[in-house]
Amino acid sequence: MIANTFETVSNEDVTTWFKAAHLSKFPKNGGACIKYKDKQIAVFNFEREGTWYACQNLCPHKMEMVLSRGMIGEENGEAKIACPLHKNTFSLKTGENLNGSLDAIATYPVKIEDDFVYVGFVD
């Protein structure tokens, strides 16, 4: 199953920092999708919060590659992403589905170096 190809990576476990793109390519307070090997990863520049987030682009509701096109926001101080298809929301910190009991999404660490955006993976 395609959902199994995504697994949360924590900062400590990163073995590869993938140089995704220059930060000017990413919309402010919105998302864009990057490709790493066969993975689609949604990356968000939550400028208001001053944080970058990354998660799987796949929405676990209907298994479509769409999360990068959703809207970001926060709920009780926690950053979240709302899927553009049916507005299910997921925490960008823990990946947890906030408005229901869908499976959690995988999240990935992001770092910025010399104006480039890097996403962390375990290979």
């Binding site: 208001r48 809207m71 926001g73 709920e75 979240k80």
Partner: peptide, 10 residues
């Protein structure tokens, strides 16, 4: 207050 969400933005 805060950083907004998918309800107030649109």
């Amino acid at each position: 207050e805060g950083n907004g969400c998918e309800v107030c933005k649109p």
